[in-house]
Design a protein around this nucleic acid. Structure first.
Lengths: 113, 113
DNA sequence: AAAATACGTAACCTAAAGGTTACTTATGAA
DNA sequence: TTCATAAGTAACCTTTAGGTTACGTATTTT
């Protein structure tokens, strides 16, 4: 997973509305756009933009059936990030804030992600 | 953890530069602003803004000593989110995309977070 | 004391996020 | 066939994000 798509996933999750949308779709796999819209006070276009952000991040899968767009939640990106971060920050996720002082003698450009 | 601060954490993590900063500070607990700046090509002010975003999300702790600002990584917010999401989406994080179709008879305002 | 260093604040600029309304298009139902 | 419904596109607006330069202030260092 490249840093760009990691950005997309975190960015997508950084909105309460979008996290709610994930909840809704998860509880109703295959539901359509109008169904999701009923839960919110904002316009359908605004909801569609949120859906597109989520789809772009890979958190939603779309399947067009006739005139309706069926929505499915995809947990894979979250799992990937979780696995990645548990490896890199394993001690931290485990709950211990270890003061692991790696000897970094001279600053250099970091190339993470 | 309220949805607002959850937003802040995800938002803070949605930037490759900021994730790199976390790496740097984690590898050098107590380092100062200038030290972090050496890793990036952007201005010091830009880096400071990133640091403030991270601090606001609770991912960085700051301790002023004389004229220097000492930086420490704080994993607590990440742990909280992890625990929260593993509870809510446990089956998903576990790797099985279960088609758990909860019977949601009539749409209503969702109040998650 | 003078100079260099570390940080902070203010004002500004550009691009992106997140919302709106208006209009189109395609499909399903009567 | 007509009408209602589901979705998409375009153009626009306002706020926020992320960067800049210029300037100010406190604390070390020489």
């Amino acid at each position: 997973m490249n840093p760009e798509s990691m950005d997309n996933v975190f960015q997508a999750l950084a909105s309460s509305v979008r996290r709610q949308i994930l909840d809704i779709v998860q509880s109703r796999p295959g539901c359509n756009v109008s169904y999701v819209c009923r839960y919110f006070d904002v316009s359908r276009i605004a909801v569609m933009k949120h859906l597109n952000v989520l789809e772009n991040a890979g958190l939603l899968i779309t399947e067009k059936q006739g005139r309706t767009r069926c929505l499915y939640f995809n947990a894979a990106p979250i799992q990937t990030i979780y696995e990645r971060w548990t490896t890199e920050y394993s001690s931290l996720w485990a709950g211990r804030l270890t003061e692991f002082k790696r000897q970094l003698e001279e600053p250099r450009k970091v190339n993470r992600d």
